[in-house]
Design a protein around this nucleic acid. Structure first.
Lengths: 206, 206
DNA sequence: GTCTATAAACGGATAGAC
DNA sequence: GTCTATCCGTTTATAGAC
């Protein structure tokens, strides 16, 4: 179980620490204690803190990108969107998205790190825009007419909901935004202005 | 112009610094230099960093609460919502909401500070829920049927959009989420699935 | 109230032994 | 590769002079 290389352990624990406490909220000492090495060993792999950060962002982005690419493109757009939403269920409750955290810390980041965070956002925004475009074509989703703008605001809303859910330690707040998204993108618009229940369109995908 | 007391200047500059760089991203030295005093003087007013933080949150919350209360309640709900949205236009582009930042930094906060941040969120969520309820009654807004849940996800989306707008230094990203909100809450639902333009419902409220 | 001086711990980072 | 030892600036915080 603990056969991972020191470098891999450093990256994994650094990711957790940043997602919990932010870039300015963790130190080489914290990280060294978590992994069980001395701070000098971290500098061997990552000379400066910014080098460590870049590597953590790259690893995180690559993993997330792989997961997005792995979503079966033969499903309907609506089913793919639901699959995307399900990915957020497995996130640890005391951590937020690495790049959501770094977006808040942007004033403390190097230019390189800032651009990597932007790139992460664009990957999600573009994926969402593409699935909306496909949904308009296959009739399973509706759009405001500007799929790119929809992708941007949807991902911003999701990031905000992740932060808020952790603040209140309430995973329901994340589901609230997903329900609103599914409502907004419903081709049939079957959940607008319903009297009270509105638990519709939850398991309708596929 | 600079006749404010030292204490007031400390609070104002601390607010700016936290909104730019987060709780772990500023120091007593930063703050002292901005105000033109020594760090020991800060400790005279605020013995510990947490005391300063609490005071900053309280001042910020009181000011924002006053602005919300000042929105003319004789207007239609839709007009009040538009007035609310306009409030965000005047925000500095390099700063995010104090409590949006602190929500990301929540793992570094004292229990007291965390609860103050939660209270700030609840003020906005409840204000939005109330205006939605009023809008359903006066016919100017529509709801999912659960106004409280709507208030929660709307404010989460706004916070996410503020962070994202700063990340990309692009105020349009904030307007995108406001347009989506206005679309979602439109009683007439006049902006869903329109072919391309969809610049409607921008200046329609009073 | 504001300062100087200082404490004691922590920050990222480096040199060199093993 | 990992360690010990160390550098040096920063951090929050306190004591006491003015």
């Amino acid at each position: 179980m603990n056969s991972a290389t020191t470098r891999d352990q450093l990256l994994d624990h650094a990711q957790c620490l940043i997602r919990r406490r932010g870039y300015n909220g963790f130190s080489y000492r914290d990280l060294a204690e978590h992994v069980g090495v001395k701070t000098a060993s971290i500098h061997y792999y990552f000379p400066a803190k910014d080098d460590l950060l870049i590597a953590v962002i790259d690893q995180y982005t690559a993993k997330v990108h792989g997961v997005l690419t792995g979503i079966d493109s033969t499903m309907t757009a609506r089913a793919r969107l639901n699959r995307y939403i399900e990915l957020f269920e497995s996130a640890p409750p005391d951590q937020i998205c690495l790049c959501g955290m770094l977006a808040a810390d942007v004033a403390s980041l190097s230019e390189r790190a800032r651009q990597s965070v932007q790139a992460f956002f664009r990957i999600h925004e573009n994926w969402l825009a593409d699935v909306i475009t496909a949904g308009v074509q296959d009739g399973t989703l509706s759009s405001s007419g500007d799929a790119a703008a929809d992708g941007r605001w949807l991902f911003a809303a999701i990031q905000g909901a992740i932060v808020t859910s952790r603040l209140f330690q309430d995973p329901q707040r994340l589901r609230d935004v997903f329900r609103a998204i599914q409502c907004q993108l419903s081709a049939g618009s079957d959940c607008h202005s319903s009297p009270s229940g509105s638990r519709l369109s939850q398991q309708t995908g596929q």
